[in-house]
Amino acid sequence: MLGFIIQRFLQAIGVMAVMSLIVFCGVYAIGNPIDIVIPPEATQDLRDEVIRRLGLDRPLYEQYFIFLVNLLKGDLGRSFVYNIPVLELIGGRLPATLELVLISVVSASVIGVSLGIYAGYRPESWTAKTIMAASVLGFSVPSFWVGLILILTFAVNLGWLPAGGRGATIDIWGVAWSFPTLDGLSHIILPAINLALFKLAMMIRLARAGTREIMLTDTIKFARAAGLSEITILRQHLLKLISIPIITVFGLELGSTLAFAVVTETIFSWPGVGKLIIDSIAVLDRPVMVAYLILVAFLFVTINFVIDLIFALIDPRVRRGAAS
């Protein structure tokens, strides 16, 4: 097990190193931030001074090297636009995204898996057919359109829920959170639904496919022959057997939603990291872009690592494979 962890750790470092190089070169290739940061009427002396101070006069490899050294020191640079450390900037926005994404992905998974198991368990029932038809809708309707319709219906026409923003927040460990307040919670509902729909549909389909497959196996027949009740079979046998693909997708969705909840955050003016990165790209704020993409890579590497550990916990065969 320890060997497995070390191996995964080295792999993660490799992935991060390659990712930082690609991101750095990629970001370097687009646009010239000087044109945006410095007003056109500035003198040539001032221009040179700013270019030198931002380190943009050095060759690419040198800039990358400086970036790496600072990265190892835990310093991801300062934003060109806000002139504050990038980590502080991202850290200030992250909780907003985190609470929105966690609420939507977790509830989509819990509800989706339950509905999917039901649909797979009683595939011929009308309820199951309705669930499956609705899941196709969840897949095929574009997210931005759903967001607009949600606002139009619940905020504009019915006036039940606010159309955007975070609402009242409470500070926990020096970070502002919306979910503990009723007002904040009412602000989360619509964007969370918007984010959750696609994932809900996917979880339904995954759980249904797994359930249909497992219910036909001898394992389930044997459990029935031993007189186990259906609810025990579903809870004790089925749930664990279908969980591996579901956890994989859960992890990937969690990562990609945290990183790229951009559309929803924009529609609902949710001040999260997705909106930050879009704004930064618009003004070519290179340190923010680089730091953000590297953090995303780190996020995925971490999530995948945790998922592998969970697999080993769930499936003893994986555990043996990992040990040898």
Binding site: T217, D218, T219, K221, F222, A223, R224, A225, A226, G227, L228, Q236, H237, K240, L241, I314, D315, P316, R317
Partner: peptide, 20 residues
């Protein structure tokens, strides 16, 4: 089932749940 009448199957690899 299981108390008065029970059954065993052909393939023991498929009948037992691999994760329990």
């Amino acid at each position: 089932r299981g108390r008065e009448i029970s059954m065993i199957f052909q393939d023991p690899i498929a009948t037992l749940n691999p994760v329990l």
